[in-house]
Amino acid sequence: MDHPEEPAAKPKGKTAARRAARSLAMQALYQWQLAGHSLNEIEAQFRVDNDFSAVDGAYFREILHGVATQKTELDAELTPCLDRPLDELDPVELAILRLSTFELRNRLDVPYRVAINEGIELAKVFGATDGHKFVNGVLDKLAPRLRAAEVSAGRR
Rank of each mutant, 00 (worst) to 15 (best):
H3D: 12
E5C: 06
A8K: 09
A8T: 14
K10Y: 04
K10H: 05
K12W: 02
K12T: 15
K12L: 11
T15L: 13
A17L: 03
R18I: 15
R19L: 09
R19S: 10
A20W: 01
A21S: 10
A21W: 09
S23V: 00
A28Q: 02
Y30C: 06
Q31W: 09
W32A: 12
W32C: 07
Q33Y: 07
Q33A: 08
L34P: 05
L34R: 14
L34W: 01
A35V: 02
G36M: 07
N40P: 09
N40Y: 05
N40V: 09
I42C: 05
E43H: 06
Q45S: 09
R47E: 15
R47C: 10
V48F: 09
V48T: 11
S53V: 08
D56L: 08
G57Q: 11
A58K: 13
Y59R: 15
Y59D: 14
L64G: 04
H65F: 12
Q70V: 00
T72P: 13
T72Y: 15
E77D: 15
L78K: 08
C81M: 05
C81H: 14
D83G: 13
D83H: 13
R84L: 07
L86M: 13
L86K: 10
D87F: 06
E88A: 07
L89T: 11
L89K: 06
V92C: 06
E93Q: 13
L94F: 05
A95Y: 04
L97P: 11
R98N: 10
R98G: 01
R98A: 00
L99D: 01
S100F: 00
F102G: 02
E103S: 08
R107H: 13
D109E: 15
D109N: 12
D109W: 03
V110D: 10
P111G: 12
V114H: 03
A115H: 02
I116N: 02
I116M: 05
G119M: 02
L122Y: 00
A123S: 08
K124D: 00
V125L: 07
F126H: 13
G127E: 00
T129R: 14
G131P: 01
H132G: 02
F134K: 03
V135N: 00
N136Y: 09
L139R: 00
D140G: 06
K141C: 07
L142N: 04
A143H: 12
R145M: 04
L146C: 05
L146F: 08
A148M: 06
A148N: 07
A149C: 01
V151P: 12
V151K: 05
V151F: 06
S152W: 11
G154S: 12
R155F: 06
R155M: 14
R156C: 10
R156Q: 15
